[in-house]
Design a protein around this nucleic acid. Structure first.
Lengths: 192, 192, 192, 192
DNA sequence: ACCTCCGGGACTCCCCGTTAGT
DNA sequence: ACTAACGGGGAGTCCCGGAGGT
């Protein structure tokens, strides 16, 4: 009956991975302990062996979501020191990214929720937004670093906004248009 | 304790106005019948004389939020046939707008929630996004209408994304930076 | 079908007389427009021809209750200029008075309710308490008027307290004891 | 969001303590489930985990009010075998007691309401009135026990009546006069 | 003068996070 | 560690009663 430490760690990881997907799909409140544990193939009784409370789970899942989301964004160009802005934007504004929020960028998926969350979550978002902006800066090839940072932040705003709107809008035509127009806007006008 | 029809209409309107603010602040789920009615100076018992259900309220409040938010955005330039893009953007990305989501644009406040809501809400968002884009087109002074529409959609993406991020980020410095950089980006590169 | 002015006045008076009894029995809240009108042989539809609101009725009924209650207390000795304290106390602390609050002293019946009512009702009580105290002073045959007033107020406190307690207590034996002991206390020790 | 048994007991106690205060202030009807629970930091949904009905709550709160009120009355002379009548009366007829019915004697606060309540409440009042009278007997130092009991009941009538009237009367001057005169009456004439 | 309507408030139900026994 | 309550949150229902409208 006893379970090894390794098994417990596996369980913990599996739960977090699932939770990370679920919050990106359903928001910070869109998570349910019973369903989550069931999805992990466990019963809810054991939940509190892993997490002090639901809030604790959400906090950990949020950290995980940022890491997972960033990993995916960079997975297209794994070992490149300088990332092509074009590829980054194309990937970010792709239909695949739009249609799978559970696997995508946590910033776009959770920014609105985080605006209503505690300071810790907000600080976490700030950190990861900075990191994303730094990635964009790497792709800009700009001379003036201050200017590049500004432009990168603006580009991130455009990407995040477009993804949120494309996901929210019902008409498929309009949704595609949003993705396209944002991509062109950023790529044709973004780099000087 | 009896109440006239005029009073009922007043109550109905007051409830909706409050709900409209509350969903923009707390999301479509961030509303509570008891508290809402209490805020309106009533008790929850009478709620169902006004709305068939909580969902009905949310639907009506959502419509109201779009109207209220748009009214505020256009109130800066009341009777102008052609609206200045600059003034629109400045107003949209102002600190005041960032700090008062309850009074501001419903698109930015609720897009993420609407992405998880029913088709009706999504269609509603699409309509109001189109309207906002049309407003932006009016300020662009572009020759090619198809091009203008694309650019307007991209600008809306930037504005919405920047507002959401500025609201979510904890650090005030970064928040201000986001608003500024998005404004410059849109104004220097938006118009041809 | 038309009703004369005299009839309306009669109706008004009958409603008030009934309300005066009902509030003394059931408290300021223990009155119900429909039942009251039915008891008066009328339908509740016509109520608002007589009173602006339920609150208006209660205010008028309260005034009436004080007058009616005082009239009864003095009816035992109608034409006496100086009233015998003994007879007043005996009447006040009688079983009949205890068992018929609807016909009795409004001060005892409503003092507690008035303590939670508006300032107007409280001022009204003050006036009638003064009047009752003055009646007691008349029966004391005291030389020093200031001293007499003080004693009269204390006697009123005893009478009112005893009546309230005798009405509230369940055990008949104890209830009688309260009336008796208060009477003796006031009569043997009250007058110097 | 889960809660332990100890927490439930705390909640139960807090609810009762609040209810005990509220009924002494607002009467047996002056209590509202929603407000009460809100004051206790809870919502009305959980109320019925603690009480079978509002009536059940009122019954329990009434018992609590008698205990709390008596505890306060005796707290001035904690361990005295024989209680000074003077101190008891002074405390009972103090302005502080008059101005804080929620913390004070339940007999005075609720006697009138209990006169319109069920037999259980009336029997409860009888018991606590007997207990209070016994306390007064202890302070009288009388030889004849039957005589002492009578006098104690009369004194209780005076105290209760004076407190009720002092609370109900609007004019502060008259209110103070009532307290003073009743105190003098009881202390100069009460003891043989 | 009837009828309707509106709001107040007690009560019920279900969900879900948490804890207690097994 | 699983199963089964438990406790609280919150939407929804029902009935009462005061008050307009025809």
């Amino acid at each position: 009956m006893g379970h090894s430490r390794a098994e417990k760690a596996q369980h913990h990881d599996r739960i977090l991975a699932l939770a990370s997907r679920q919050i990106r799909q359903g928001g910070l409140d869109g998570i349910n302990v019973v369903e989550l544990m069931r999805a992990a193939g466990l019963t809810h009784g054991g939940f509190y062996r892993h997490f002090a409370s639901r809030a604790d789970l959400v906090a950990q899942a949020l950290r995980r979501a940022f890491v997972d989301g960033a990993a995916r964004a960079l997975s297209a160009h794994p070992a490149a020191a300088t990332i092509s802005l074009k590829r980054f934007v194309r990937g970010y504004l792709s239909r695949a990214h739009r249609d799978e929020p559970g696997d995508g960028c946590a910033i776009a998926a959770l920014a609105a929720d985080i605006g209503r969350a505690d300071a810790e979550a907000r600080a976490l978002l700030a950190r990861h937004l900075e990191a994303s902006a730094a990635t964009v800066v790497g792709g800009l090839g700009e001379s003036d670093p201050a200017d590049a940072r500004k432009r990168a932040l603006a580009i991130m705003s455009t990407l995040v906004g477009a993804l949120i709107l494309a996901r929210a809008v019902k008409a498929p035509g309009l949704s595609d248009e949003i993705l396209q127009s944002a991509g062109e806007f950023v790529l044709t006008r973004g780099p000087s």
